[in-house]
Design a binder for these strands. Structure first.
Lengths: 278, 278
DNA sequence: AGCTCTTATGAATCATTGA
DNA sequence: GTCAATGATTCATAAGAGC
């Protein structure tokens, strides 16, 4: 079985128009934040963020299936001592476009860098806004019960041998007990608060979010062979995760150097896979 | 040294008008959520929530000192598959009133209400919106480093001896590393994500939030002998914490049965203190 | 005392029923 | 129809009991 990966070099305001209507199951994206990535899209000013994004969200609504979901990873910046309001204004405007604002997940960035400013602490969370075209969207809640189990296993792997071999019945409380709980029930429903550390890749390109973030939503909202779209591909995290998970994917990126990087990574990956098959 | 506790039975829409201007250092409150507490304020409908709250926030702005802070604990409900927008509309309207929207803290409710629905998970977080009159508000960031230490100690208590004594250098990552971090630095700045469980009191009145929530903000934004106001006093958590912390406090409550309960609790407490002094 | 087990319960949502 | 009331769902805590 093969899945399609379609990466497109260009401005998503143009490229989205070329995609067919009702063809995408999940849109997962982290658009350039206001005043960030000034080299792309001209560094959108906070005051014009909403007006810049609305034509894009309208096209996204067109290409999304009725049963599909749009997850928007975004956080307003603080400027002159205040939080900007462009994100909440965007929510209101997107509702005017006909989007349903279904949920707001919180991504708690557990290991965000220390830092303190005169009037604020470090910002350790981002919004994951869920929008839908219809109340009857696809959702596979059981699927994300699995990563909870995997998460427990991952934590166990990182524990020292003393932890693993100690007499659980003797400890009985605290972490010991919790770990045994995780082991015994591999099924637990998550909440709308997602705890993930930001990834620390010492590569040339740093991903805006860890792979587990798109992975979680791809599991929750799509099946194998569905189609995932990221109109602001960046370093391609969403696309690569979708591919690993046997979902078709479409990525659009305006910057040639990011596009080329993703292109190369994908080529390497395919080569590697072919070599293994020999 | 004595601090004043002033609890008022009445509708805060009226009672606030009687308070002097520029007299309060911190407002910490959790207003009745839309369609909740129907016996008070007539159970405000989501559609009219903003128009109901705006006259109140205007009075709050009047009584707050220039250097003061307003912390609003609120969360929009989900209805018919969508999140309501009255909270974000309120933010925009309060900015029109002249408030600065300084920050949005996230309160992660670790033990939120159980339940799983066809297209939604448990809601495990609430907003703590920070508003100010001026950029030059009082903030004592060092003060809240202390509860972080206490929190670490509480966690350490629950750890087994093997955890405490094992070779940290061998583990190097995961829990072991985190624990050693906690041990080595008793001073750490928090982030804008607050992790607290809701209280499970088997009393007649249940607090909407745990005492540590107002405690954290009182430490952060006030000094001893400052004044704290809660215009929706409820079971009086804010008032009682402020009193313990030697801050003057004012609480307004519309329901006689809550008012009487707080009255009684305060009387008991004062009696107890007098006995100790003898 | 301290540890372990049991039990009650909370700012919730949604589908269904009944007026 | 539309609106209000009811039942089902089902988990992290703390209080309380028992050893």
């Amino acid at each position: 079985m093969e899945v399609a990966v379609d990466i497109i070099l260009g401005d998503c305001r143009e490229e989205l128009k070329k995609l067919p209507s009702d063809s995408v199951d999940l849109i997962f994206t982290s658009p350039p934040y206001a005043d960030r990535r000034k080299d792309t899209y001209g560094g959108i000013s906070p005051d014009r963020y909403v007006e810049w994004f609305l034509p894009i969200s309208l096209e996204l609504k067109r290409v999304l299936k009725e049963s599909g979901t749009f997850i928007l990873n975004i956080k307003e910046k603080a400027e002159n001592g205040q939080r900007h309001t462009y994100v909440i204004e965007l929510i209101l405007q997107m509702k005017q476009q006909g989007w349903l604002w279904t949920e707001e997940f919180v991504w708690h960035k557990k290991n965000s860098y220390p830092g303190k400013w005169p009037n604020r602490f470090r910002d350790a969370w981002e919004r994951l806004l869920q929008f839908n075209k219809s109340r009857r969207f696809k959702m596979f809640q059981e699927e994300v019960m699995v990563p909870m189990g995997q998460w427990a296993e991952a934590r166990l792997k990182r524990l020292s041998d003393t932890d693993k071999t100690r007499d659980v019945s003797k400890v009985g409380s605290g972490f010991g007990k919790n770990i045994s709980n995780w082991l015994q029930r591999d099924m637990a429903y998550p909440t709308n608060v997602i705890h993930l550390a930001t990834e620390c890749n010492n590569k040339n390109h740093s991903a805006a979010f860890p792979e587990s973030l798109p992975e979680w939503f791809i599991k929750l909202f799509t099946e194998v062979n569905d189609t995932v779209l990221d109109p602001f591909m960046g370093s391609g995290t969403t696309i690569k995760v979708a591919r690993k998970m046997m979902r078709n994917s479409i990525g659009i990126e305006i910057l040639p150097r990011y596009y080329e990087m993703v292109r190369e990574d994908l080529d390497k990956d395919i080569t590697y896979q072919n070599l293994r098959l020999l």
